[in-house]
């Protein structure tokens, strides 16, 4: 399988105080690290799931892949093209290559445009208006299973599921090889979530695209992804094939997430690991392994140093001093 997207040691920091303010208030480091050295690869035609709590940096990472946030360090290579440090004008042209879906299905559609104009927009932006826009719009609507009459509606006249379909159509308008879907099922009820996931799965098979799914819904991840990564505090702490991760997690945090997911079978025996406390504040980064204040297995070593990457077979890797099930 060829690698389509390759992230290497990506760092994204946000400024918290202006330079002047930082001096006045005596703050040495007026930044927070939202993404702290993430490396991952997505192959052609692969679905990768990125999972983590709120504030773990999933969305920031996704935005840096779409080019909305500029990483301070590291490299993002898409199909051989380096995105970090790309000039703005070039970046604007590049953006058609990666489709993006945002969290709020209705809120991510410009409220005063009809669905027709919204679907025609990608072509207009990238100067492809010599194509027959009417036909393109109909093709897109058909692709996501919406009736042609929807072209005349406005976003506020659509249900969440319908608006999400329009979002999918917009993301796929310019035949991208990669779609970044930030919480594709947020705000939808379960039956509609299923429809949208099936739609994504079908389109992926038909078009051969890769999908990066960002979610905190583990059922979604298990349903559609081939591989997954767990993010905690701006780092990917464990990644590997989805099934392996579900059956044999190595990182205590992965296990904690999995055991927090409700199990439909009441008689099923599961290893439970409950976490104490909250995600620590980004302004107050714990030393060593960021997970140690909440980790039941933490010891001095965890406080002192951040664990190196340990690679298991099958592209499964983790960062932990005390991995589970591994002796």
């Amino acid at each position: 399988m060829n690698t389509l997207l390759e992230l290497d040691d990506v760092h994204v920091r946000f400024r918290t105080h202006s330079p002047l303010n930082a001096i006045l208030k005596g703050i040495d480091d007026p930044f927070v690290d939202a993404v702290n050295g993430v490396s991952l690869e997505i192959g052609e035609g692969e679905t990768y799931g990125l999972v983590g709590e709120s504030g773990s940096g999933k969305t920031t990472l996704a935005r840096s892949i779409i080019g909305l946030v500029e990483p301070q360090r590291g490299s993002i290579r898409y199909d051989g093209t380096e995105l970090v440090g790309m000039p703005t004008a070039e970046m604007q042209k590049f953006r058609g290559n990666v489709g993006a879906m945002f969290q709020d299905p209705v809120g991510s559609l410009s409220p005063r445009m009809t669905i027709r104009s919204l679907l025609a927009e990608p072509f207009k932006i990238h100067d492809l208006s010599q194509r027959n826009l009417g036909q393109e719009v109909n093709r897109l609507l058909e692709m996501v299973g919406l009736n042609r009459d929807f072209a005349n509606r406005y976003p506020h006249q659509l249900s969440g599921g319908q608006a999400r379909r329009v979002g999918v159509a917009r993301a796929l308008a310019l035949d991208p090889k990669l779609v970044v879907a930030d919480e594709p099922t947020a705000g939808l009820d379960v039956s509609v979530q299923g429809e949208i996931l099936n739609l994504l799965g079908r389109l992926q098979q038909e078009l051969g695209i890769s999908i990066l799914v960002i979610t905190h819904n583990l059922n979604v991840v298990r349903h559609i992804t081939d591989r997954m990564g767990i993010m905690y505090f701006g780092r990917v702490v464990e990644q590997g094939p989805t099934e392996t991760m579900f059956h044999q997690p190595s990182h205590p945090y992965t296990l904690a997430l999995l055991s927090a997911n409700p199990e439909p079978d009441p008689d099923a025996e599961i290893d439970r690991l409950e976490l104490q406390g909250e995600v620590p504040s980004l302004f107050n980064r714990p030393s060593g392994c960021e997970f140690h204040p909440r980790c039941p297995f933490a010891d001095d070593r965890c406080q002192a140093s951040f664990p190196d990457l340990t690679e298991l077979s099958d592209a499964h890797s983790y960062r932990c001093h005390h991995p589970l099930h591994v002796t």
């Binding site: 935005r63 779409i66 080019g67 909305l68 604007q92 042209k93 590049f94 953006r95 058609g96 990666v98 993006a100 945002f102 969290q103 709020d104 809120g107 991510s108 559609l109 410009s110 409220p111 005063r112 445009m113 927009e121 990608p122 932006i125 990238h126 979002g167 917009r170």
Partner: peptide
């Protein structure tokens, strides 16, 4: 910072297009 503005930027819309087509009408 509305999400639809982010979505337009993600599609590659330039500054003037965002102002003219998406901010101004609103």
């Amino acid at each position: 910072d509305a999400e639809f503005i982010l979505a337009e930027r993600a599609l590659g819309a330039g500054f003037f297009r965002i102002i003219g087509m998406h901010i101004l009408p609103n």
